[in-house]
Write a protein that binds this DNA or RNA. Structure first.
Length: 208
DNA sequence: TACTATGATTCAAT
DNA sequence: ATTGAATCATAGTA
């Protein structure tokens, strides 16, 4: 009798210990996961930022990638979909806030996307570099070349840096469905209302 | 060491 | 559910 009781006791305590341990572990992992996410922030790889930026700037008029696109971007950048979402969330906000500064980046990346991806001999990934043409890289399996037009326009608009003052991004692209309309809306209050912005702007290219 | 850039989280609005 | 905005926390830099 006592034997049985003893055995059962032992078993119980064993189970107890196990339970304790596992719950403890679970809690710890949960906690660390929650905190670490923020604590151990690591910058994305060049590849990732490159891919993200290219998409962002070639879709400046509507930088809202669909789920599929997000997955694609995540794959190319070697990050997760939620990271892509985060990135785009941050990017939109910060682009709006800073548009002035970031526009340089915009030009850079639009240049890259249309000219050629400057191959950096660090990655060594077989994703989409070393393919000099914009389409060949097949950035995204989107509808089709519709977006390429955008890129080209972007490029065109950045060609001549005349007064030194960048105009607004190619918001005038009306190819996109006015889903969000102009997501930037009142981005640069002053810039938008800048009275003398017509000074020799280069928007006369349409004539040719 | 202060500052800036940047990824992640939270919360309200839609 | 998704997005914008604010905020946090870390990485990188001057």
């Amino acid at each position: 009798m006592e034997h049985m009781v003893g055995i059962i006791h032992g078993k119980f305590s064993a189970i107890q210990r196990q339970l304790k341990q596992s719950t403890c572990e679970a809690v710890m992992t949960l906690r660390s996961r929650l905190l670490d996410a923020r604590r151990k922030r690591r910058n994305f790889s060049k590849q990732a930022t490159q891919v993200l930026n290219e998409y962002f700037y070639s879709h400046l008029s509507n930088p809202y990638p669909s789920e599929e696109t997000k997955e694609e971007l995540a794959r190319k950048g070697g990050i997760t979909v939620s990271q892509v979402s985060n990135w785009f969330g941050n990017k939109r906000i910060r682009y709006k806030k800073n548009s002035g500064k970031l526009q340089e980046e915009a030009t850079m990346y639009s240049e890259k996307t249309s000219v050629a991806t400057k191959v950096r001999g660090s990655g060594g990934q077989t994703s989409c570099q070393s393919t000099p043409s914009p389409g060949s890289c097949g950035p995204f399996p989107l509808t089709s070349g519709g977006d390429m037009v955008l890129t080209l326009r972007t490029l065109a608009f950045l060609q001549p840096p005349p007064g030194g003052a960048f105009l607004q991004p190619p918001g005038g692209v009306c190819l996109q469905p006015p889903a969000h309309s102009s997501w930037q809306r009142a981005t640069t209050p002053q810039a938008a209302s800048s009275p003398a912005e017509d000074s020799g702007s280069f928007n006369s290219d349409v004539s040719n």
